[in-house]
Design a protein around this nucleic acid. Structure first.
Lengths: 115, 115
DNA sequence: GCGCAATGATACGGAACCGAAACGGTTGTG
DNA sequence: CACAACCGTTTCGGTTCCGTATCATTGCGC
């Protein structure tokens, strides 16, 4: 667990949100970010329907987010050879770097919080 | 400061984002949330231009966000009596409750993180 | 009183996003 | 083999958001 007081939690959120909206960080929507972090933090395999269930959104939402983040090279699609109905969503080098930097930013903002 | 390791930071972000997109929490855009937290965490006075500068967005963005969050009673507009060109953005009871609950959710998710 | 600048709001065109419906392809079953 | 079920993608109509341009009001200096 991480010990975090309510005011610290809110301040942390504010600072990271401000960094995001000021374009200090690339601008992904909430859902895109949730998808991205899930792919990079949760163990594979990741499928469109799995992600849709996890986020409680419809599959086309995932498809479109994959389109967008695929174009940014943050994620990649691969057809599942064992069942070609499935698309497996994989990590990329660029995506891993993006997620690492995001994590570093959050850590940095946390470090600036009053005790 | 708050001691947070990169993986914890990312996990925290993931869990709160997932809670948000699953509608466990009301769905505000990143910018709306940044505006809301700024009004509730930073000392007044808050003006449209001040918020626009802080977020590095244009004034109509703030106006629209105020429309949306005003309708949700999370924020209120008051014309500044000393200079009637200004609109002062004030806190509301509902907004304070919302922000408090948001903070509690973040704290709860932080409490679930692996050490 | 006038001209100018500042304020926030409104209108406009465009981009991005949503869910529902539809579609084409693949797999499992009888 | 035919059909149902499943998959992800595409289309559709609607909503929300963006920046730019414009507007009405207010304040200030001359």
């Amino acid at each position: 667990m991480v010990a975090l007081r309510p005011l610290q939690a809110l301040r942390l959120w504010q600072q990271v949100c401000l960094a995001e909206v000021r374009n200090e960080m690339p601008d992904l929507s909430e859902r895109q970010l949730a998808i991205l972090l899930t792919v990079y933090l949760d163990p594979p395999p990741h499928t469109v329907r799995g992600l849709a269930e996890k986020l409680k959104v419809t599959k086309p939402v995932i498809t479109r987010a994959l389109d967008t983040m695929g174009a940014m090279r943050l994620l990649a699609r691969h057809r599942d050879e064992e069942d070609r109905r499935n698309v497996l969503i994989r990590r990329t080098v660029e995506g891993a770097l993006f997620v690492e930097r995001f994590g570093d930013t959050v850590v940095a903002k946390a470090g600036e919080l009053a005790p």
